[in-house]
Structures are given as structure tokens and as C-alpha cells.
Nucleic acid binder design. Structure first.
Lengths: 225, 225
DNA sequence: TTATATTTGTGATATAGGTCACAAATTCAT
DNA sequence: ATGAATTTGTGACCTATATCACAAATATAA
């Protein structure tokens, strides 16, 4: 399916830098795909000639660790994926899997690199994204290490509510095991803490639906260990 | 002190992409500084208008975490630092401190961005570096989480020997507390493991001098937890 | 070189969070 | 809707590693 990028209402900040002609080139080499929860967007180790633009939905980035698959971060749109594939060798260095019904554009890598080479503003915006990613991982790194489980879960809930869903009521896009994997804790501990928070009236949880009832207490727990 | 970049024998791969004229521009806006262990290269929170090129020596990147300063990685040359400052706001988002006598070039950010905008090959190489950084943090992330202390220290020793010093005999550039901070362990545990390795004949340690005696066992421990 | 500050080694003890096991609840596919 | 598969809740128990507390060893500065 061909995407009409010129009329796309989910353009990335970088894509806004492109001229009409450039957008046309992009459009001709870009395929929009709708994906469901669990679908693989990028498979680590596979050969690829595409950059992927996450246009809507949610995905997780995970890599194969020494003992098991490790989720390294949740990605929300707008976001470019597989950039290391574009710039390094053509083998995907991590996997990306949809965790919430997503629209994704597969962009031919040659065109993407061509656009980078002729449009410095486009290139500049992509660099900003790369830097932001790096900083985010740094920040997570310190957080993962220094906080205890209650703090890490409080953080995650606040992030979901503030950064991802922009609402105090949302449905967790991942299982408790995946949360555990992401924040470096066992599934059982995640369950225990979530239940605690529920009993303490901090959140109201039924199934995967969560409503944050007491944001301030979460903030407190987040900065307490 | 003005640096004569055209004659620099420690050029980055990116800098090799620059034309003579471009190198000249760089040279005019670049200051070479020699720094000692403990010297601050970049201070998180401070305003900056420079990119920093690590030309020789070693440095650590650390950020302020929720409870204490967290070392996120050791940087070896050639490497550009403070790129997020260049691309985002002008405030440094992390600190960089020298851990082994270093030479560093402070490059005016305006020139750096100018070169990026006119030279796509230069820009391309910088993007490769940004991507490599991201992947490296992903990898570390999985490692830190999934391995036990012996495995993490084995990894660190192998990295020092293979990646940093290219020799089985080297002197640790950081204290055991810093190692603990980097691999997410207490100083005491680091000491115990290093002592164990020493007694087990895997390494030969006196003071900060370490010689790797049994590389294979280290590899084994590294992939064992 | 000498004094001072920092780093390291090691035993004793404490604990956060992991692991196991199984029942209950949800979610998914037909 | 219905049965199968997955996810969640929770008690009992375990363990890797943190903490504490010093003494010994090294590194640093005067």
C-alpha cells in the first residue's frame, strides 16, 4: 500500500523540513502498514533495507541479552526506528514489536539517506532524535539502578499517564512480566506492588485498566526509593 | 591554544570527510587542551557552546541520578562529546570527567553545525557514532540486568583488556567504588570478587595493576551469570 | 620522606527482592 | 458464548548482595 506522505497528518518534525519535491520522493518509496499487538516490526539479526516510522500506536524495543530477551524501552510516535541499521551494516541490531495497534511506514533506506544528504534541516532533526534517545537511556539507566521497585513502578505509571496516554485513566499495554523485564524486577514483585498501590488507594486497578487516584503519592514514592 | 587540525594525527573518521577548506574552518575554531585525571570536561547543567572531541586519554560520562551521581559509560577516543548540547538546548545534559590524562578539543558549536550542514559525509559519520552509542547503551542495559557480579566484573576486565588497553596488563583507571557504580554493585562486592579472581589465579592484581592470567575462565564467567 | 587522605580487604549481619508453587482471574480464539 | 491459554495474586522460603565496621594498604601532597 502506497502512502501519500504529502497529506499525512502525522508528519514527524523532521519531515516538516522537506520540500514538496522531497516529500514526493519519500512518498514514492514509503509503505504504510497497519499492525496489531504482538506483530513484529523489526527482527534483530534480520537483513533490512528500510527505516521504519512509527506513526501511531505503541511499540517496544527489545534486544537479545545474555540469558533472555530484554525490553529496553517503549517507543511512542512519532519516532524513527531502525536508524542504526540505516547507518551501520544492514542487519537489525534490535527487535521492535507492536504493543498497541500501530501504523508504521516502511521507508526505503536509500531514499532516507538521500534526503539526509540533501536536506541539512531534515538531517538536523534526525540527529536531535538520536541524541534524545541517548539521553533517555542514560536517564533510565540511573533510575533503574538507584530506585527500588515501588519507585520504579511509580515512575512507570506516571510516565504512562503523563507521557503516553495523557490521561490518569489508561490500560496497561504490556503484561506484568513485561513490566518486570523493563524495570528489572520479577513478575511477582510487580504484581505485589501494584496490588499494594491498589489497596493503598493510590491507583484503582481492574485487570489492565488503571486509574491514577493519587498522583502526589506516586510522585512521593518515585522520589523516595 | 590553537589546534592545527590539518596536521592532527588523531583525526576522527568524520573529520577525514572534511575538505581542506573545511578543516581550516574547524582549525580556526578549535582549542586543544591537555587535561589530567579528575579534571572536568563537561559539567551537567552548565551552559555550553562547544562540542568536545576526545582525542586521547579516557573519560567517564556521568549523570546526576535520583540519589547519587551515576557513571553511565567510559569513553575512549576518538569520540565526540556534548552532542546533545549541540542539538538540543545549550545546557549540558551530562557530565564528563577525565579518568586518564587526556587531550581534548573544544570545537565551537556553530562551526560544528555549519560543517554538518554543508558536508553530508561528515554528518553521516556523526550519525553513525550516535547510533553506535545508542546500541552500546542497549547492550549494557541487558548486561547489567541479567548478569551477576562476577559476570559483570569479568566483562569489565575483558573490555579493559580488549577494547581499551589492547593488552592483558593494564592499570585500572578508576577506583573500586567507581567500578561498583558503573556495574551497579557495592564497592565491597567489587573488592571481594577481584580478590577472588586473584586467589583463583584468573588475574594477577597488585594495587591498580591488573594482569589477566586466564582469559578463558573470564570468558566462561562472563557467560555464566 | 613524612604525614594525610583515600582506597581496599574482609568478617558479621541484614534485607530487598528473587524463586517456587498453585489457585483465581482475565483474555483470546473459535 | 465457551473452553483453552495466558496472566495475575499471594504465601513460604531462599539467596545474592547490600551494609556496617574496622584494619591494612596505597596513593597524594607538602
Amino acid at each position: 500500500m502506497k502512502n501519500e506522505c504529502e497529506f499525512c497528518s502525522f508528519k514527524s518534525k523532521a519531515a516538516l523540513m522537506l520540500s514538496d519535491g522531497e516529500i514526493g520522493r519519500l512518498s514514492d518509496n514509503c509503505a504504510l502498514v497497519k499492525l496489531n499487538k504482538g506483530d513484529t516490526v523489526i527482527k534483530q539479526g534480520a537483513f533490512s533495507t528500510n527505516v521504519v516510522y512509527l506513526r501511531s500506536g505503541l511499540a517496544k524495543i527489545h534486544i537479545s541479552g545474555p540469558y533472555y530477551e530484554q525490553i529496553v524501552r517503549i517507543v511512542k510516535p512519532p519516532s524513527y526506528l531502525a536508524l542504526p541499521t540505516t547507518f551501520g551494516d544492514k542487519i537489525n541490531q534490535y527487535s521492535v514489536t507492536v504493543i498497541e495497534k500501530a501504523e508504521v511506514c516502511f521507508i526505503d533506506m536509500i531514499i532516507f539517506r538521500y534526503l539526509l544528504s540533501i536536506n541539512p534541516s531534515f538531517s538536523y532533526e534526525i540527529m536531535i532524535e538520536l541524541c534524545r534517545n541517548e539521553l533517555e537511556v542514560f536517564y533510565r539507566c540511573a533510575n533503574r539502578t538507584q530506585k527500588q521497585i515501588r519507585g520504579k513502578i511509580a515512575d512507570l505509571l506516571l510516565e504512562m499517564s503523563d507521557q503516553i496516554y495523557h490521561s490518569s485513566l489508561f490500560s496497561l499495554p504490556v503484561s506484568q512480566s513485561e513490566i518486570g523485564n523493563l524495570i528489572d524486577a520479577s513478575r511477582e514483585s510487580v504484581s505485589r506492588v501494584l496490588t499494594e498501590f491498589n489497596k493503598e488507594g493510590i491507583i484503582n486497578m481492574k485487570g489492565k485498566r488503571i486509574e491514577i487516584e493519587n498522583r502526589n503519592t506516586l510522585l512521593l514514592i518515585s522520589s523516595n526509593g
